[in-house]
Design a protein around this nucleic acid. Structure first.
Lengths: 163, 163
DNA sequence: CGGGCATCTATGGGATCGCATGGGATTTGG
DNA sequence: CCAAATCCCATGCGATCCCATAGATGCCCG
């Protein structure tokens, strides 16, 4: 399925380089790697979003839905494209995070890579632990909603049975 | 029906490897095995949930219904993709359990594999024994309810008694 | 009917490979 | 000409592969 899945934590070396987890690299290549990793500050978190060609197309798709020359589109364009950086990946699968991106996510010694399907995020490890806790507790709630919503009828109905 | 059924207990060797019970392996293959076993901590038990492609699609399906870049999707993505690990199965049908997963389920010397239809769980053997006892007593109650409702004809009402 | 052979599974151990990481060398651009 | 970014190579650890053993099961053929 070639999606970014699971989390990995790698170190930032003295030169500011980080290895992209090998499984993520594999996804990027299959995604039609051209020469860069698209990377930008997450809009609502102290983290970075990154991905390959598929992600780039997705961003385009969002804008395509808005009329040209509308304020909304302009704002979104700036928000989406404005801070995007195309990071080159060296022969060993590493990238260098520019200052502004590193600041946005408070990255210093290590980076936690979090697979999110089409894209992945880069977090300061401790910050991500917090975030993860939060997400887990919310999912408990969401799960109850699914169960209550009666979505159990698809092929064998173990949807809410996770225990 | 190619479901995960019944329970098996296998040892963890010095390298942290465990054999997946052969019957489960067979199910995984028929399920369209691609490159890994999808595995994540059970949300409300000291155990691990695991499955093949079918389970992965199910997870995707949950997210597919949500709009891109919505908060809800982000939360769910983190909780679902972030905790999932794709474990590769070696030529002998074994997997290696990563540290964080082993900790979550208190696994050390052995693992009990429990078939649950679409997926299966991995428990520390003693913990599962406890769990099983508990389940049995609950089933007793459930059965009485069935009986009281006049459905006494299904001779043992074992639907949830999986053992 | 029974003995032995073939097969499959679980498990252990050795050898190899890949990945993350570090450090020097080289190039690029200002 | 200097600083910073890029490339290339070395290394150590962990993961993966491959082979060996052993117990259990089942089958075939005597």
């Amino acid at each position: 399925m070639d999606r970014f899945v699971s989390t990995f934590t790698n170190k930032i070396d003295a030169k500011g380089r980080v290895s992209i987890p090998a499984p993520f690299r594999a996804v990027l290549e299959r995604d039609g790697y051209v020469g860069g990793l698209y990377c930008y500050p997450s809009l609502d978190a102290a983290a970075l979003d990154a991905g390959g060609e598929r992600l780039a197309k997705k961003i385009d798709g969002l804008l395509a839905g808005l009329p040209d020359y509308s304020d909304e589109r302009d704002e979104l364009s700036v928000a989406l494209y404005g801070d995007v950086q195309v990071l080159s990946i060296d022969g060993d699968g590493r990238i260098v995070l520019p200052e502004n991106l590193r600041v946005h996510a408070n990255l210093d010694a290590a980076v936690t890579f979090v697979g999110l399907g089409d894209k992945f995020q880069m977090w300061e490890p401790k910050a991500f632990e917090e975030r993860r806790k939060e997400a887990r507790s919310k999912v408990q709630v969401t799960r109850k909603l699914f169960a209550a919503g009666g979505r159990s009828s698809d092929d064998d109905g173990n949807e809410g049975a996770r225990e």
